Simulated scan of single mutants.
Amino acid sequence: MGYYVKVEPTVNIYVEDVNPISEKVILFVHGWPANHKLFEYQFNILPGQGYRCIGIDIRGFGKSDKPWDGYSYDRLADDIRYIVETLGLQNFTLAGHSVGGAIVTRYMARHHGYGVSRLALFAAAAPSFTEQPGFPYGLKKSEVDQLIRQTYQDRPQMLSNFTGMFFFQKLTKPFSDWFFQLGLEAAGYATASLAVSLRDETLFNDIGKIQVPTLILHGVHDRVCLPLLATVLHQGIRNSKLVWFENSGHGLFWEEKDKFNRELLDFIG
Rank of each mutant, 00 (worst) to 15 (best):
F175L: 14
R223M: 06
I58G: 05
F175R: 13
D200H: 12
T86C: 03
G208W: 11
Q42C: 05
Y4T: 11
F260N: 06
A77N: 09
F179I: 11
E256N: 13
E40C: 00
V11D: 13
D222A: 02
Q157K: 13
Q42G: 08
L265H: 14
G88M: 14
V212M: 06
F175D: 09
L182T: 09
H97D: 05
P136G: 11
W254E: 08
L89P: 07
F28Y: 03
F129D: 01
I13K: 01
H111V: 12
G2Q: 15
D65T: 02
Q49D: 13
N19Q: 06
V25D: 01
D206H: 10
K141C: 04
Q235A: 12
D200Y: 13
A123K: 08
I54E: 01
V212Q: 05
V99W: 11
D258A: 13
S248F: 02
E185C: 09
L194S: 04
Y82R: 08
D79A: 12
S248M: 06
G50L: 02
I45C: 00
N12P: 09
D65N: 04
V220Y: 05
N44S: 13
D74N: 13
V15M: 01
Q169S: 11
N247R: 14
L229W: 07
L203S: 10
V232P: 04
G138N: 06
Y107C: 08
E143K: 01
L94N: 05
I83E: 07
L159T: 10
A230W: 07
Y114T: 11
C225D: 07
I54Q: 07
D200K: 10
L215E: 09
H30K: 01
A95N: 11
L226R: 02
Q146V: 15
I216C: 03
A95S: 15
Y82F: 12
V220R: 15
Y3V: 08
V116N: 10
L94M: 01
V116A: 08
G188H: 12
V220H: 00
L139N: 03
L229E: 07
Q150L: 15
Y3I: 08
I210M: 05
H30T: 10
S117P: 12
G236N: 15
L121A: 03
T231G: 07
A186T: 09
V144C: 02
V196G: 03
G115E: 03
D177T: 12
I207R: 04
S128W: 00
F39E: 04
H250F: 09
R106D: 12
F175Y: 14
P127L: 00
V84D: 00
D258G: 07
L184H: 02
G60P: 07
P133L: 05
Y4N: 05
I148L: 09
K140H: 15
L119A: 07
A77E: 12
E185F: 04
R118I: 07
G100Y: 00
K209E: 01
P47D: 10
A102C: 03
I13W: 00
Q211D: 14
D222H: 00
R52S: 02
Y137A: 06
G249I: 01
S240H: 07
A120I: 15
F245R: 14
L182D: 11
P67V: 03
A190I: 09
H234W: 14
L264V: 15
K257A: 08
D74S: 11
D57K: 14
V220S: 11
H36Y: 14
H218Y: 06
F180Q: 15
P227H: 05
V29Y: 06
P20W: 12
I148P: 10
W244P: 02
V29P: 01
A123T: 11
L76M: 15
K257S: 11
